[in-house]
Write a protein that binds this DNA or RNA. Sequence first.
RNA 1: CGGGAUGUAGCGCAGCUUGGUAGCGCACCUCGCUUGGGACGAGGGGGUCGCAGGUUCAAAUCCUGUCAUCCCGACCA
Length: 576
Amino acid sequence: MRMSKLFVQTLREFPSDAEVMSHKLLVRAGYIRKLTNGVYNYLPLMWRVLKKIENIVREEMDAAGAQELLMPFVQPSELWQESGRWEVYGKELMRLKDRHNREMCLGPTHEEVITSIGREGIRSYKQLPVNLYQIQSKFRDEIRPRFGLLRGREFIMKDAYSFDADEEGLDKSYEIMAKAYKKIFERCGLETKMVQSDSGAIGGSVSHEFMVLVNEESENNAGENDVFYCTKCGYSANSNHAVSILNPAETDGHFDKAQITDTPDVHSIEELSQFLKVPSSVICKCLIYVIDGKYVAALIRGDRTVEETKLMNVFAGNDIRIARNDEIEEIMNNSGFSAIAGFIGPKGLKGVEIVADETVKELKNFVIGINQTDKHLTGANWGSDVELPEKIADIRLVEQNDKCKDCGAELKVTKGIEVGNIFKLGTKYSKAMNATFTDKDGQEKPFIMGCYGIGISRTAAAAVERHHDEYGIKWPVSIAPYKVIVVPVSDQDEKQMSVAEEIYNKLIEAKIEVLLDDRQERAGVKLKDADLIGIPYRITVGKTILDNLVEFKERATNVTQTISPDEAVQRIINIS
RNA sequence: CGGGAUGUAGCGCAGCUUGGUAGCGCACCUCGCUUGGGACGAGGGGGUCGCAGGUUCAAAUCCUGUCAUCCCGACCA
């Protein structure tokens, strides 16, 4: 491709509305352009990158025995009613009506559609297992789209769905996908970590995420997830799912008797700890949440933090948020109290479900709110002063240096970009939607399903996050839009131009994806653009061509060498 | 949903306090000159100042509303 004809506009400055590097660079280098909030045009260079990633995904999915198909982007509400998700999916589901006033939605994922395909097409266990996948745009009306391609509302995703006759079959299908994913990301030039995670709105039991770790890059960290991992045994999990052994802390408040103590204007745990001169770990924190519209009080040791996803899962909820002050007021009114936030306790709460984290069980002579403003109960004990809630669960956020539950070593935390995820769905959708097959024994049984996603556009952005420098992008060769760019320094110099053309033609002949910068620009512009766009190899034809020498540059390392044009061509051909 | 900020040419921005008919850099077009790291000179094109009302002889500027975008928070008990 000749640069003079290539549809690309590079910018001299970074766009003002971009925060993370992948967003800044992809816009500046002319790969993407925002159409509206969270929705981007993929310009020709970007589209080449996306197709590269898609093809790697296709090759590995096909090799793993999956078959590609394409499902509609617009889906009827009926299917979502069947699965029960029409009600629970929430505002992220973009709903619309057709001319007959029928309710439809834009596909944020395709479990419902694939389940309907499975139940129509698979009648017998003899047809199983089946794994079907597609590569397609998804639309999720995110609360807050950001970071360019990393969290858009419309994005390209590969989603695969497996159907098996039994759990063993699913385990096998899951294992095959886990292996395929590892290979896919490796081929894309991305090192990933497979971590345990919460299964979220998709539903199901077991799930893992593939994370690109980005902690090393200090400024503008694009990693939206905290990943906890054990340095010894390899345990790793998303913070929404990670568990640990209770960290040791002072659990005895050393108050000699239970009594109501004045704590005027002391609202936070930190203030309370300072005021009473006790460690925060002997304070029993009580947080009021709203889960699917219902009030929940969560008790946790004062030095620890509630993990909202874990808490929500205790109640099998879909939506969680901390209660507003007016809601706390309502609870107080209903329970015959009048305390404000900061002094809430579990005792006597009406219309509120109570759950306690494991951390509060062992507390002795502790401090707790009693629904009286400016007062706390000190020296409290379970049973005699406050009832220990029946519901006890692990609802705490793991912290760095907590001990690994598998081996006892210390856990560390790092930031990650989730580029892929795999779920064991089980029978969640097949049961709800009555998708069954006839098993060996003649019995009608629901499919045991799994689903497997890869964010294609996010993977591209993650690659930029991982591979760039101050001058621009450094694409891994496997997903670069072009492999090599030939740059004649002066378009006035006939010799330089003719050699550049010659190299260009030889590379085309060898079926190499090559750019020729034949623009009438000064050398600086062409060299800057080559770095910015991030083509992995550059062959620069300058004055030294009189000695039959060109410059060969590898973008990944920025190492340059002076070699003959023929050798440069040969080197490119040898790099596959 | 709450808080903060911003909307002026394709991109980056100034002008607004103190109202007077819109400007700078980059990009774009023409000519000259220049060619190893985003040159230079001369000339030129491009903007209903987010939108809608209001105040005024006069509004990018003041007032009201609205829409959009960006950032932060979503942990205070």
